[in-house]
């Protein structure tokens, strides 16, 4: 009963309906009655001994759901996987967050969890790449690293006494610039081996945060500390000489080509379309949507229109049925 919030013409409505029905028919064969709502009892075999997981409660010897979602069973464990809810962190997740506050030796970040997450100054690599003790001076200069409202990529370290802690002990983590942040509901993102993606043909980076924050930005070469040190040693004299022309160089460095900016917008809109339709968001599917928009010669702003939305739904139905046949 969740309507897709779009203005559709009559034919578009029919086409969308058809595509969605197709999707329904594809999934219903797998798990037909696994969905539960709050206070539904979950049928279990008590003789085997049941472990009650998240989203379940005990009511007079009955296992009852406390969430709306899908029942999952792993050996003896029974739990309810909630759809639309806030992000639940797991250790090792790659997340994207926004700095809310610069506090004592730490940054407070919003990562769409029920609490704020902490990134300790000691849990991240310094921008200069040197391993050393963090001094009081470093603490005073924390705003030089991240300021309020900066967007940061980090990894979940775990729960400590005072809350959720993150870490950023690699060059690939850190501040994200020249790009767009899109927020989607976290159930659309699946945990995968790879969350950092480089779309070479477009020159953009795509970071799919497990918390439903998705970053689309200009491609940045990940600087490897070791390599950079060697380069620095040989080029140190060169860099001193060219110090006067820094401003021009800097300008060039900060400039993002129009073509790249367009691709960033295109990728961001692809994510937005998938989010409104409620389709799972993975690299392949985003790529597919970008290619679809390019092949139909669509302007970037038209990607958010209803026509493209219907088209994406139809393509997705096609794709899922073809992958199903292969299996």
């Amino acid at each position: 009963m969740r309507e897709i919030q779009l203005q559709l013409s009559q034919t578009q409505k029919v086409r969308l309906q058809k595509a969605l029905e197709h999707l329904e028919s594809l999934s219903s064969k797998v798990n037909s009655d696994a969905s539960v709502t709050i206070a539904d009892s979950i049928p279990v075999n008590h003789e085997d001994g049941v472990l009650k997981g998240h989203g379940t409660a005990d009511l007079e010897g009955e296992v009852v759901a406390t969430l709306c979602g899908v029942v999952e069973r792993v050996n003896k464990l029974v739990y309810v996987r909630a759809l639309r809810s806030r992000y639940k962190p797991e250790v090792g997740d790659i997340v994207i967050g926004r700095v809310i506050e610069v506090a004592q030796k730490r940054w407070r970040l919003d990562i769409n969890y029920s609490q704020n997450a902490y990134l300790m100054l000691s849990a991240m690599n310094m921008p200069d790449g040197v391993q050393r003790r963090r001094t009081a001076l470093d603490e005073l200069n924390m705003r030089c690293i991240f300021e309020e409202a900066d967007v940061i990529c980090a990894e979940v370290r775990g729960f400590q006494q005072d809350g959720l802690h993150l870490q950023a002990r690699s060059q690939k983590y850190g501040k994200l610039t020249t790009g767009q942040l899109i927020t989607v509901t976290p159930y659309l993102v699946k945990r995968q081996k790879q969350h950092f993606h480089h779309l070479e043909q477009y020159g953009i980076d795509l970071i799919i945060g497990c918390n439903g924050f998705i970053w689309v930005g200009e491609h940045v070469e990940v600087r490897d500390d070791m390599v950079e040190d060697q380069v620095n040693q040989s080029d140190s004299q060169v860099s001193i000489r060219s110090k006067n022309s820094v401003s021009l160089e800097e300008q060039e460095k900060n400039y993002t080509a129009l073509e790249t900016r367009k691709y960033i917008c295109r990728a961001a809109n692809a994510v937005r379309v998938l989010s409104t339709l409620g389709f799972i968001i993975t690299l392949e599917i985003i790529k597919g949507v970008i290619d679809l928009s390019l092949s139909t010669n669509l302007d970037i702003h038209d990607m958010l229109g209803s026509e493209f939305c219907v088209l994406v739904a139809e393509k997705e139905a096609e794709r899922r049925s073809s992958t199903k046949k292969k299996r």
Partner: peptide, 13 residues
Amino acid sequence: LLENTKQLEYRRG
């Protein structure tokens, strides 16, 4: 709610 949950689940794939 049940209809909504089912819909979200099959759309997600």
